[in-house]
């Protein structure tokens, strides 16, 4: 289950971490019943220094709760967490200087003040040496194209501009680890691309450890060699993106164009016809199986004109993974 955890001394370490919430629910006009919700139910993993890891899962799977425990906001109900050798919940403010956090839907910038003022506050509050601050700000301004925005009040920025501004704010104090919660949510294609390029650059050149939660699998495909999937508070997958296909029992699709409109193709071993549209037919077969025998079987008995093979859609794979567990 754990390829990709290369480093010998892990930077982030979770061991059997649990978080249980007591939830009161209405059970009548005045009566409330208490019951337990296991937001995180025994998670263990390690992340090496300089790794960039994607952390995905459906809503309510426990992603945010995990990030909140890693940042020291929430105290785990059980288990052990170490970030840079520190227990986040006990030394929250000490660790705060060494980490950057971006909550995609909540800005840390000052609404009515120029963007630059928010950065000045970070410099003073984190006591960043002026040279370091200058160097980091210059890099962020260049790579995130913030130059024209520095003098503008934050309330005038677009969502994408504000997100870039927030990411820069989280990096001015040279954090060793960066937590990004939905960093590309609601952004347009160009903003997304710019944010991803920037994160890749930061991770590569500064050796910053990055953990990002996202719904956008393109983020993961483009940024992370390793992905962790969490569902119902448990880690259901930890490894390379490619390995997800095997675990998720995903299917590839063979699209064939026949000489004329025909009845659905039948009797090809391992494959089944899922769609027919005029002379074109779609056949699904397991991703682990080679396409060659399927193609050969079709070509042997049907008037084949053209064909193409489609790789499984990673979103479908993960969606199937979630539903598979829910049943």
């Amino acid at each position: 289950m754990t390829d990709g955890t290369g480093a010998e001394t892990p930077f982030i370490e979770l061991d059997g971490v649990r978080k249980v919430f007591q939830v009161r629910r209405k059970a009548g006009r005045l009566r409330r019943t208490k019951h337990e919700v296991r937001a995180v139910d025994g998670i263990s993993f390690t992340v090496g220094r300089g790794e960039m890891v994607g952390y995905i899962g459906p809503n309510g799977a426990g992603k945010s709760t995990t990030v909140k425990m890693l940042t020291g906001i929430l105290v785990p109900s059980a288990g052990r967490i170490r970030v840079a050798g520190i227990d986040p919940s006990r030394e929250r403010t000490g660790l705060a200087r060494r980490m950057g956090v971006v909550f995609g839907q909540r800005t840390t910038l000052w609404w009515d003040l120029p963007l630059r003022d928010s950065y000045e506050l970070v410099r003073r509050m984190y006591r960043v040496p002026y040279d370091t601050y200058r160097k980091n700000l210059d890099r962020c301004v260049e790579l995130l194209d913030l130059g024209p925005l520095l003098a503008a009040p934050v309330r005038q920025l677009s969502l994408g501009q504000r997100m870039r501004g927030d990411i820069a704010a989280a990096l001015l104090h040279d954090p060793e680890v960066l937590y990004l919660d939905e960093p590309t949510i609601g952004l347009d294609v160009i903003s997304k691309a710019r944010v991803r390029d920037f994160l890749r650059e930061v991770n590569a050149s500064l050796d910053t450890t990055v953990l990002l939660t996202t719904h956008d699998l393109t983020d993961i495909e483009q940024l992370c060699r390793r992905v962790m999937v969490i569902d119902h508070g448990r880690l259901v997958y930890d490894g390379g993106l490619a390995g997800l296909h095997e675990v998720g029992e995903s299917e590839r699709t063979l699209v064939v164009d026949l000489a004329r409109e025909m009845a659905p193709i039948e009797g090809v071993p391992g494959a089944r016809t899922v769609k027919v549209e005029g002379p074109r037919q779609w056949l699904a077969f397991p991703a682990s199986q080679s396409a060659a025998p399927v193609v050969a079987a079709v070509a042997e008995r049907w008037p084949l004109v053209d064909l193409s093979v489609r790789e499984p859609d990673i979103e479908d794979v993960i969606a199937r993974m979630y539903t598979g567990r829910a049943e």
Partner: peptide
């Protein structure tokens, strides 16, 4: 609204 979390990740009481 959950913005207390932002204050909790800053290095100040």
């Amino acid at each position: 609204d959950g913005t207390l979390d932002i204050l909790l990740v800053r290095p100040a009481p």
